[in-house]
């Protein structure tokens, strides 16, 4: 129990803003690249913000974006300056502590899901997502995975599609026809 508690209490992953990740006096693997990325993004954004309206008037639509992206660039550079000078954490590697394979696989699954969402429709793509991800994480047998995925999907579909009428992309699954079928069925029964 104490071991798991230690694991949960591991602050270096940044569980919340009150317990931020990283180390005060050491640099985590990949931190320098991330900081560099932030500085480059800030610079590009500042350039784009300048392009909005230049600095014609105090009330130009570009004034606040320029101010905020300017602050991003300055603070980004300060952070970069600080980070460069820190020693690397000796015990951590990217593959183990920052981007383990399970996270990379999951991001890939999510990307696949979101790109299939529109052409294929919500119901089939979400089902595939659930099956893949639950199978991948739980390694249980297919009956468990398929049953649980179907149950979860039906629940979410009922709440969002039927109760809250959120029209997720329909794609290949004829859900509007299905709903109409039930509607006529109930109307006929009355």
């Amino acid at each position: 129990m104490s071991q798991t508690e230690d694991k949960y209490d591991d602050h270096h992953d940044g569980r919340s803003d009150a317990t931020p990740g990283g180390y005060a006096n050491e640099r985590r693997p990949g931190e320098l690249i991330f900081t560099l990325f932030l500085v480059i993004v800030s610079a590009i954004l500042l350039l784009e913000a300048y392009g909005i309206s230049g600095l014609k008037k105090l009330s130009s639509p570009g004034v606040i974006p320029m101010a905020t992206t300017g602050v991003m660039l300055v603070t980004g550079l300060i952070i970069l300056f600080q980070t460069v000078r820190l020693p690397k954490v000796a015990t951590e590697t990217i593959a183990k502590d920052i981007l383990p394979i399970v996270v990379i696989v999951f991001v890939a699954i999510l990307a696949g899901f979101s790109f299939l969402l529109k052409p294929l429709g919500f119901v089939p793509s979400a089902f595939m997502f659930l099956v893949f991800s639950i199978k991948f994480l739980s390694r249980r047998n297919w009956a468990y995975v398929l049953g649980l995925s179907l149950l979860t999907l039906v629940g979410i579909w009922l709440i969002f599609r039927v109760v809250f009428s959120v029209l997720m992309p329909a794609g290949v699954f004829p859900e509007a026809e299905l709903i109409q079928f039930f509607r006529t069925l109930f109307a006929g029964a009355e």
């Binding site: 803003d17 931020p20 990283g22 990949g30 991330f34 996270v103």
Partner: peptide, 10 residues
Amino acid sequence: YFMRHYGYPL
């Protein structure tokens, strides 16, 4: 996810 790892508050 990266921000959390590198100590940026969300």
